[in-house]
Computed example of a mutant assay.
Amino acid sequence: MRPGLKIGDQAELKIIVTPDMFAQFDGKVVHRAYSTVSMIYHMEWVSRMIILPFLEEDEEGMGAAVSAKHLAPSAEGAELVILAIVNEVKGSHVITEVTVSNRGKLIGMGEVKQILLPKSKIASLLEDD
């Protein structure tokens, strides 16, 4: 990992809820609202945005854990702000706290843990499958 990543670093992602983000199972929409699956995806994405400038050429980040609470629904067209803030850097582990807001109202919150590993290590882990 390149030097410089520190506690308090942050990244922000703004998205608009679209039908492909609705809660659905087996291709059938259950609720015309922002799904928990989409929220987790965006939480991981904004957390990844933080580590990208610090990855060495031979490194990659992997998700290791996500915890989340989806507190309120958001309809199609809602403009959401997803904010990740680094709260721990320990060796190759980076942990971010993430919030999801809809017009200033907190609709989701959680934590994302990433591990920075050599690409060769990731490849060898996948070969073991």
Rank of each mutant, 00 (worst) to 15 (best):
residue 128 D to L: 04
residue 105 K to H: 09
residue 128 D to W: 10
residue 123 A to E: 15
residue 123 A to C: 01
residue 123 A to Y: 14
residue 85 I to K: 15
residue 123 A to T: 08
residue 108 G to H: 03
residue 101 S to L: 14
residue 106 L to M: 05
residue 123 A to I: 08
residue 108 G to Y: 03
residue 128 D to E: 15
residue 94 V to Q: 02
residue 128 D to T: 09
residue 104 G to D: 03
residue 85 I to E: 15
residue 118 P to N: 03
residue 90 K to H: 05
residue 98 V to S: 05
residue 106 L to F: 07
residue 92 S to W: 04
residue 93 H to T: 05
residue 121 K to G: 00
residue 115 I to R: 08
residue 100 V to W: 00
residue 122 I to C: 00
residue 110 G to I: 07
residue 107 I to E: 00
residue 127 E to T: 02
residue 126 L to M: 14
residue 110 G to Q: 11
residue 85 I to H: 04
residue 127 E to W: 01
residue 106 L to D: 05
residue 86 V to P: 07
residue 92 S to C: 09
residue 104 G to V: 02
residue 127 E to V: 01
residue 102 N to H: 11
residue 93 H to L: 14
residue 111 E to W: 03
residue 109 M to Y: 07
residue 94 V to Y: 02
residue 98 V to K: 04
residue 105 K to N: 08
residue 103 R to C: 10
residue 127 E to S: 10
residue 126 L to Q: 13
residue 118 P to G: 02
residue 112 V to T: 09
residue 102 N to V: 00
residue 104 G to S: 02
residue 89 V to R: 08
residue 88 E to T: 06
residue 86 V to C: 07
residue 112 V to Y: 15
residue 91 G to C: 07
residue 119 K to R: 12
residue 94 V to I: 09
residue 108 G to Q: 04
residue 98 V to E: 04
residue 109 M to C: 14
residue 94 V to L: 01
residue 127 E to N: 05
residue 90 K to I: 09
residue 119 K to Y: 12
